[in-house]
C-alpha cells in the first residue's frame, strides 16, 4: 500500500569562502553609443551568472540589460575573479560589477553635469538617460554623454573595482569569528508516497521557499532552485558511488549511478522570500548551492511521516526504506504512525 507523508526542512547557508579572501574584480566600459561592456573573470557554468551581472551593470548605469555585453573567462582579458564557486558570483562579483559601473557612471556624471548645468551629485541614470533628480525633463541620452566624454572631453567612462567579502578570522580554539559576510535561508517541504511493501519512494511535490536577497532575475533563481532540488532528490534517494573491497568504483557510469531522470522529478513550487541585504548589490545575496541543501532532509522527514521509519544513512534506497519499515514494526510499533492518509496502491 502507498502511504503519503510530508516533511519539512529549513537551512542556512553562507555566501562566499570561509574567512579566506575571495575577491572579484570587474571592469565596466561605456561605449560611445551608451552601450557597455563588462569584463569579468568569472565563468558561465550554466547558472546564468553573466545575465545577472549584465543586469547589475545595467541597473547601475541606467541602461537595459541587453545594452551590456559581458566578456568573461579569459585570463588574458578579464580581471581577477575567485570564480564560479561558493554561491558567490551574484554577491561578490555582483558587488564588484556594481562598483565598477558606479565609477564609470561617475565619469559620465562629471561630463554631463556642466552640460545640464547642475552638480554631478544631482544626477541620476535611468532609461538610457542621465537626468536631473526630480527634474526628469532635464536630461541627456546616455549615448550623447558617453560620446561627449570619449571624444570631446577625452575622459573615457571606464570603471574598475573589486570586492572582497568582509570577514573576521575564527579563533582556532573556539571557532568564534565572523567567517562569512552574509547568509541565506530556506525551507523546503516535500510530499512523498511510500510503498510500504517495496520501500519505493515517490516524491510528488516540493514547495521551496528560498531567500536570495533581491532576486536580480527571478526566472534564473527559479531555475537554480528547480535544478538544486533535482540534485537533492538524487542525494536523498538514489545516488551513490560504490566501491569494492579493494577501493575500486563499482558503478562509474550513468547506467548504474542512479541520478534523477525527468520521470523521477516531482512537481516543484518555487517561492522567493522577499528579502533585502544592504551589503549585496541592490540587496542581492545568492542562491546556487542552498537550493540542494534542504531537499534530502525534507524527503527523509516525509518518509518518516509516511511510514514511521527513520533512515539514518543516505541514500534512502527502497531497500533501506523497507528495512527501516520492517525494523520499526519489530520495535513494537503495532500500527504504522503518521499515516494520516493511506492511499490505494497500484495493485489495489
Amino acid at each position: 500500500m502507498k502511504r503519503r507523508g510530508r516533511g519539512i526542512a529549513c537551512m542556512w547557508y553562507p555566501i562566499g569562502f570561509t574567512v579566506a579572501a575571495n575577491p572579484s574584480a570587474a571592469t565596466v566600459k561605456v561605449n560611445e553609443d551608451g552601450t557597455a561592456t563588462l569584463l569579468t573573470g568569472t565563468v558561465e557554468t550554466g547558472q546564468g551568472s553573466l545575465t545577472v551581472l549584465a543586469q547589475i551593470a545595467a541597473e547601475e548605469l541606467g541602461v537595459a540589460t541587453e545594452d551590456v555585453h559581458v566578456v568573461s573567462a579569459d585570463t588574458d582579458v578579464t580581471p581577477m575573479d575567485t570564480g564560479a564557486i561558493a554561491s558567490r558570483t551574484t554577491y561578490v562579483t555582483g558587488n564588484a560589477t556594481r562598483l565598477a559601473a558606479e565609477k564609470a557612471k561617475a565619469i559620465l556624471f562629471n561630463v554631463a553635469a556642466p552640460m545640464l548645468g547642475v552638480r554631478p551629485d544631482q544626477l541620476e541614470a535611468r532609461d538610457r538617460k542621465i537626468q536631473v533628480k526630480r527634474f526628469p525633463q532635464r536630461q541627456l541620452p546616455i549615448s550623447q554623454v558617453a560620446h561627449h566624454a570619449l571624444f570631446v572631453k577625452g575622459d573615457p567612462p571606464i570603471g574598475s573595482a573589486s570586492f572582497n567579502p568582509p570577514t573576521v578570522a575564527m579563533d582556532p580554539e573556539t571557532g568564534q569569528g565572523l567567517p562569512f559576510a552574509t547568509y541565506v535561508y530556506a525551507t523546503q517541504i516535500a510530499e512523498v508516497d511510500v510503498d510500504d511493501e517495496t520501500g519505493e519512494v515517490e516524491v510528488l511535490r516540493i514547495v521551496a521557499s528560498h531567500d536570495c536577497g533581491t532576486a536580480i532575475n527571478p526566472m534564473l533563481v527559479e531555475g537554480q532552485i528547480e535544478g538544486g532540488i533535482s540534485m537533492g532528490i538524487g542525494l536523498a534517494l538514489q545516488e551513490e558511488i560504490l566501491f569494492d573491497d579493494k577501493g575500486r568504483q563499482i558503478n562509474p557510469n550513468l547506467t548504474n549511478y542512479i541520478m534523477p531522470t525527468s520521470l523521477d522529478m516531482p512537481e516543484i513550487e518555487v517561492d522567493i522570500v522577499p528579502s533585502y541585504d544592504p551589503t549585496g548589490p541592490f540587496g542581492a545575496k545568492g542562491v546556487g548551492e542552498p537550493t540542494s541543501v534542504p531537499t534530502a532532509a525534507a524527503i527523509l522527514n516525509a518518509i518518516h511521516d509516511a511510514v514511521g521509519a527513520r533512515v539514518h544513512s543516505l541514500p534512502a534506497t527502497a531497500e533501506k526504506v523497507l528495512a527501516a519499515i520492517k525494523e520499526s514494526r519489530v520495535q513494537g510499533t503495532k500500527q504504522l504512525p503518521g499515516t494520516r492518509r493511506a492511499i490505494a496502491g497500484p495493485a489495489a
Binding site: 517495496t198 538514489q238 547506467t255 548504474n256 534523477p260 531522470t261 520521470l263 523521477d264
Partner: peptide
C-alpha cells in the same frame, strides 16, 4: 518491473 528509478531503469 521494479527498478532503482522511474526513467531508464534496470
Amino acid at each position: 518491473k521494479f527498478g532503482l528509478r522511474k526513467g531508464q531503469a534496470l
